[in-house]
Design a protein around this nucleic acid. Structure first.
Lengths: 245, 245
DNA sequence: GAGAGTGAATAACATAGGTTATTGAAATCG
DNA sequence: CGATTTCAATAACCTATGTTATTCACTCTC
């Protein structure tokens, strides 16, 4: 099952027609990108909604003097704002981190689902509300948490989101971010990210080596990051996920 | 003309029926709140969409140890996320800053406009995309800008948004935020907010006294805050606003 | 109109995190 | 396979911002 379907099913029960519709959307109009290239650039007119079918990407904003902030990560199954096409120009860029496969979803696709696939519409609404909640949480993260808390929080969030998309194996996951990426996302310097990761390692909160992250005890990492998963809204009426599901 | 209508008309041309519909929505189911009280609390089930008819409010998140982050401000005419009612619980609180009048917009209202008022739907889409863009800009603000830039940027944003809603007079506006509010919003300490405001004052970038803000030269304040208004998407096809309109 | 509370200003001092530079180990490449 | 680039680690030093405390000016209230 694709990460997208898997993720959306955490919130809405989808029919097999729904799943087929999503699978089709994620297999047409594909574009492939190498690592660390721009997929969409600030200032361009948004034409489609981008769905990440495979690979990691990020949204980022940059100041004239080069300071750069990653404002969110795209994991497989994530897409950018619905309905962006009503805007005149992008206020941020989207860049790949790893090799990426992107599906472009047209305006027509959204018109199609809005008449024939109400559950998909609900699921996409849910996704966009979660995206907004994540962005608020990042504001809290950058504004209030210390370097150690901030890094622990970020790693928790990524781990939860990967797990939701079915991309973890046990307590580990692929982790292609460099320390420079983490610095851009956390508002810390590269050097301090390094120090902070050392600290997390020596407390046995993470094992991060090569491009693999292992979280031996998620509860402890959550505590270190003051992480409360409520903002990810991983619930469907009538059931709940707990941290270990 | 109400701040809401005035703001939405910056983006979409509304008919008089559209305007009447919005005006009606903003006059039914009103609740009044005193200053500095909670309007919605984290953990509650969202039942309606809140529209601020009058007064200033904010969204905020708090850590267990009391650290508090204001993640956005609500000015008159602003509303919280569309479709929140599909979520089970709020991941943040909404609190008043001044005396506030809030209109509760029901699910039914949104169903009504989605069949009969397509321009309002487009306008609300635009608003929610702008909200998302503002939240990303705050992420950049907290992650990369220095204290001085950050404060200048925040003041620029508020000034632009107030002007869009018709709530400025010339180069001045009401400004009910305390230095503690600014601290919670900017991730700085109260003391440093004070220092930073002094600095902005002595550079003649702002005149802030009592509950009034005057921006003698908006261009200069924008430069100081590395402020680029593109993320507010204040444009309608076929026309543009410039900084002085 | 004295007392209580809130918001702003300022000072003295402390520290978390930034900066610059160097080195080594892996990837990547021609 | 050696050359080049990228990424991670570490050290020495620095500064922007935080902390704690005090005072002053208002405004509210009884």
């Amino acid at each position: 099952m694709s990460p997208l379907v898997r993720k959306l099913e955490q919130f809405v029960r989808l029919s097999s027609a729904d799943r087929a519709c999503l699978t089709r959307a994620a297999s047409e109009r594909l574009r492939k990108f190498g690592p660390r290239v721009d997929i969409v650039r600030e200032g361009e007119r948004p034409k489609d909604v981008q769905l990440v079918v495979a690979g990691w990407a990020c949204r980022y904003k940059q100041l004239e003097d080069g300071r750069r902030q990653v404002v969110s990560f795209f994991l497989p199954g994530d897409s950018c704002d619905l309905n962006v096409f009503i805007l005149r120009e992008m206020d941020h860029s989207i860049g790949s981190i790893t090799d990426c496969t992107i599906a472009d979803l047209s305006r027509d696709f959204f018109e199609e689902i809005s008449v024939g696939y109400p559950r998909i519409v609900t699921a996409l609404w849910w996704e966009s509300l979660v995206d907004a909640a994540i962005q608020r949480e990042w504001t809290l993260n950058l504004g209030q948490r210390t370097a150690l808390e901030r890094m622990a929080h970020l790693l928790c969030e990524l781990f939860f989101r990967l797990r939701l998309a079915g991309l973890t194996n046990g307590d580990g996951c692929d982790f292609p971010l460099t320390q420079a990426d983490l610095a851009d996302a956390s508002g810390l310097s590269k050097v301090h990210v390094n120090r902070t990761l050392q600290e997390l390692r020596s407390a046995n909160l993470i094992v991060l080596k090569g491009k693999t992250l292992v979280v031996p005890d998620l509860r402890r990492l959550m505590n270190a990051g003051l992480f409360n998963a409520n903002y990810l809204h991983m619930e469907r009426e009538g059931r709940q996920l707990d941290a270990t599901e």
